[in-house]
Design a protein around this nucleic acid. Structure first.
Length: 556
RNA sequence: GCGCCCAUAGCUCAAUUGGAUAGAGCGACAGACUUCGGAUCUGUAGGUUGGGGGUUCAAUUCCCUCUGGGCGUACCA
């Protein structure tokens, strides 16, 4: 826990005790303490922390909030003398002004923790699985997958930094109708490439990538499959193409700095009997029924508009059946919590999947689904039309080639998941001050340049940090001190975009410090202290960028 | 039609989950350095938070309604 978080906790506790004391002294009637907050005010003139406790108590006390605040302060006992001043302000807020001495504890802490600075133990080793991207292997990774990759990977990083035991997983949809369609598409391409006049299926996957895949295959086996039985042939083509496409996805994602702990195949759920098994388990309950030859799940019980088919009348289980088996499998593997990152086009599945988990006896709260809005691509001020139907769209690979990994990841993580993301390709390609990524990276490179000129960076414990008293210095230290709290917030609210904002604010305060305070100056002791501060800022920037998956260059 | 999401400065987005005077970046305008990286810094202008109602000490945030967008609404995934 960071210095600031410790102080926050102390004040929160002391405030609660003050309410108890006031209650004991007969000055407050309250029996139960309301859920109050100790927050950092928007405007710093309102102190370092502010609490709304009196405002909340006023309702049950039937007393003016400011009066309640006064009473609370009467009984408030300073924790460890870290507070220099308190006041009642506005409608009844209690503001706390900290003794600035706390600033000087921050830098030694950053120094000591280095690359681990910012890490906290919020999760206590709780095991969390994050499943993201899970794109259909029948095509290429598109912009939506790219957003999911950046957001999912960053969230996983943040959770790991917050003390959770994180597993990253990719669910491979290698079963079902689409594989059937995939096989027919591949077969048509294979035959076409060998000069046969066959028509491409109406519902086929039109992407050029399938043609390429079949070209590769023909290089190996020539026309050997022409004479093979069609059913067997499609099976062989799928097997080949699937392998090729998956290894391509794995390679593309790795280049995007995303590494999975596990690639989980849907087909294995069919093969192992887990799907059949989970259906039996559900059937034992009252959640299933048969109608028109199909097996249905009563998802209307969980807020769905209509019930959902689990087994078609042709006997083949649906994707939903597989998904239920898959999620039961996840819980059975021992994850305390399971997080899925889905595109907005899948939001309709949330209620029924949670419902299915509940039906199986799992607490649905243990399954969290983060919904990401869709991505719109802009080029030259115009939206770029993308069509999966025609197979023409910008792929993750195109994006990386075009704008680079740093820019792409930063742009995706910069936005909150529930905002429709307009990805401006022209802006992303700009290598100037219009591009927010470089603002942050520039701050890091600038620090590295200073440290290089200084030669050696002294250890924080060996310098007098209290020489740092300029407002720009104190503001920077404060922002550095906020990283652990930011990580805690981002992890518990599943909001990785906060990290990008934090990085930007930190860079902004560094540039302000740089302009106002010369690091390599005439006063040796002050210069040493500023070097320590600059270095702490470098570490903090580096760690934050690392969480987002963006490089922290020493030169640019 | 019904369900979910979204609408905030000219543009792209925040807002500590109900808190005090709604903030950043870009763009516009005006400024700053004879030493550490100008991909920087400072300032100004820019808002009825899509419209209207409601809940309360307090609403961008919660409820209702209308408008305008996105997505979903298959024995597809």
């Amino acid at each position: 826990m960071g210095v600031l978080e410790k102080i926050r906790k102390k004040i929160t506790l002391a405030l609660a005790e003050a309410a108890q004391e006031a209650h004991r002294a007969g000055r407050l009637a309250c029996h139960e303490l309301p859920e109050f907050v100790l927050e950092v005010p928007h405007d710093r003139v309102h102190g370092d922390f502010a609490s709304n406790l009196a405002l909340l108590l006023a309702q049950t006390e039937k007393t003016a909030p400011r009066k309640v605040a006064q009473t609370l302060l009467e009984f408030f006992r300073q924790p460890g003398g870290c507070i220099s001043r308190t006041e009642v302000a506005g409608p009844g807020f209690i503001n706390f002004y900290l003794d600035p001495a706390w600033h000087y504890e921050v830098l030694p802490e950053v120094d000591a923790q280095g690359e681990h600075y910012g890490c906290i133990d919020l999760g206590g080793g709780e095991s969390v699985q994050v499943e993201f991207v899970s794109a259909n292997p029948t095509g290429l990774l598109h912009m939506g997958n790219a957003r999911g990759a950046a957001v999912g990977d960053t969230l996983a990083n943040v959770l790991a930094a917050a003390g959770y035991n994180v597993q990253r997983e990719f669910y491979i949809n290698d079963a079902g109708n689409q594989i059937e369609t995939f096989g027919r598409s591949l077969e048509a391409r294979y035959l076409q490439l060998l000069g046969q006049d066959v028509t491409f299926p109406d519902d086929g996957y039109p992407g050029q990538d399938l043609v390429e895949s079949m070209q590769h295959l023909i290089e190996q086996v020539k026309d050997k499959y022409l004479t093979v039985d069609p059913v067997l042939r499609r099976e062989m083509l799928v097997k080949y193409a699937l392998k090729e496409k998956l290894s391509q996805m794995e390679r593309d994602l790795a280049d995007f700095r995303v590494q999975y702990d596990l690639w989980f195949s849907e087909q294995t759920l069919h093969d192992s009997g887990e799907i059949e098994n989970v259906l039996k388990e559900l059937q034992a309950s009252d959640y299933l029924y048969e109608e028109e030859g199909a097996l249905w799940f009563r998802s209307t019980l969980f807020g769905d508009e209509k019930d959902e088919v689990l087994v078609r009348s042709n006997g083949i289980p649906t994707y939903f059946a597989g998904d239920i088996a898959y999620h039961r499998n996840k819980f059975r593997r021992g994850f305390d919590r399971v997080i899925n990152i889905w595109g907005a086009d899948h939001h309709g599945h949330v209620a029924r999947l949670k419902g299915a988990m509940q039906a199986l006896g799992f607490d649905p709260e243990r399954l969290q689904v983060m919904i990401m809005q869709l991505v719109r691509l802009f080029k030259g001020g115009e939206p770029v039309r993308m069509s999966k139907r025609t197979g023409e769209y910008i792929t993750l690979r195109d994006l990386m080639d075009d704008v680079g990994v740093d820019v792409a990841r930063y742009f995706f993580v910069m936005r909150s998941a529930d905002s429709h993301l307009d990805f401006d390709l022209d802006l992303a390609k700009e290598q100037n001050n219009e591009n927010p990524v470089y603002y942050v990276q520039y701050a890091h490179a600038r620090i590295c340049s200073i440290l290089k000129q200084a030669g050696a960076v002294p250890a924080a414990k060996d310098v007098d940090c209290s020489l740092l008293s300029d407002p720009a210095e104190l503001a920077l230290i404060r922002k550095i001190a906020e990283l652990p709290g930011e990580i805690a917030y981002a992890a518990s609210h599943l909001e990785p975009h906060r990290l990008a904002f934090y990085a930007n604010e930190l860079a902004n305060l560094f540039h302000g410090f740089y302009t106002n305070c010369r690091v390599l100056c005439d006063e040796p002791a002050l210069s040493q202290a500023r070097l320590v501060l600059a270095n702490a800022c470098r570490i903090t920037l580096h760690n934050t960028l690392h969480l987002v998956g963006v490089s922290a260059p020493e030169r640019m």
